[in-house]
């Protein structure tokens, strides 16, 4: 379970790590948190997760071998899972994937100490709140039918493409695809605005994310009070049934407030 080649023992007092080991930092939490013994993080074998405390705040860290590249699927998922499970219980300021500092002392001196007050203040702000991400995507057929129904130029292009051999319609096909992309982008903008407005009463913040797919209808991160979570989820359910087959709606979370922390 623990890396057999490392000398990191079970003690959590400041031990000198081996030279090729560094300190991977997941996020910032309040000082009064505890982490269970079996929590593991990034790396292969996965590093045991530890807490480094300073004043009112703490950093969630694990040893990482700097000679070994990071970024495998397991590493990405371990990072997010650790933070999200923490976020379900306590306020967490998540760091972007890949934050590695040389030593535990560096974590205190260069990260926790200089930013102590602003981190502590930010933790108070997100206390009792968690992030959710709403991902809505137009179903392919319905949205294409909508586009053709609404737009005469798209219909003409489609007809022309059907009548002529494929070799001579490359320009028409590109133009048609571009037109569809533009029309879907306009729909996305309207639907995203509607989604943000609709959830305003049950959320305390919203950040519109860039679309991650050409058929995205909305991609929005929401900050939700824990005691409004049921209301929020109910509202998402209503949206889902209203949109029906037109849009597929997925809800991710609760997760750490990745979209609401800024440097």
């Amino acid at each position: 379970m623990t890396g057999s080649t490392r000398q990191s023992g079970a003690g959590d007092r400041a031990e000198a790590p081996p030279r090729n080991t560094a300190c991977y930092v997941y996020g910032i939490l309040p000082e009064d948190v505890e982490i269970s013994e079996d929590a593991v993080g990034v790396g292969d074998p996965p590093g045991r997760v530890k807490i480094i405390r300073h004043g009112e705040i703490a950093a969630l860290v694990s040893d990482v071998d700097v000679d070994r590249p990071l970024g495998r699927a397991q590493d990405l998922v371990a990072h997010e899972q650790l933070l999200d499970e923490a976020a379900a219980e306590v306020p967490v300021l998540p760091l972007r994937f890949g934050a590695v500092m040389t030593t535990p002392e560096a974590v205190v001196e260069e990260l926790l100490a200089p930013h102590h007050d602003s981190f502590a203040a930010a933790l108070k702000q997100i206390e009792g709140r968690a992030q959710f991400v709403l991902k809505a995507r137009y179903a392919e057929q319905p949205v294409l039918v909508e586009v053709l129904t609404e737009n005469a130029e798209a219909r003409q292009l489609r007809d022309r493409i059907r009548q002529l051999p494929e070799e001579v319609t490359r320009n028409e096909r590109i133009r048609l695809g571009e037109l569809i992309t533009q029309i879907i982008a306009a729909k996305r903008e309207a639907d995203t605005r509607a989604v943000v407005e609709r959830f305003e009463p049950v959320t305390v913040g919203a950040v519109v994310r860039d679309p991650s797919h050409e058929r995205d209808a909305a991609h929005v991160a929401f900050l939700v009070e824990n005691d409004r979570q049921a209301d929020f989820e109910r509202a998402v359910g209503e949206l889902r049934s209203e949109w029906g087959d037109r849009v597929e709606v997925r809800l991710l979370g609760p997760m750490a407030p990745y979209d609401f922390v800024t440097t």
């Binding site: 990405l76 994937f97 500092m101 990260l111 922390v261 440097t263």
Partner: peptide
């Protein structure tokens, strides 16, 4: 989508290689 693009970034830290 979430962890490569979002979250706190602190200049002080050393980035290891990403694959």
């Amino acid at each position: 989508d979430t962890i490569l693009d979002k979250g706190l970034v602190i200049d002080a830290y050393v980035r290891v290689s990403l694959v």
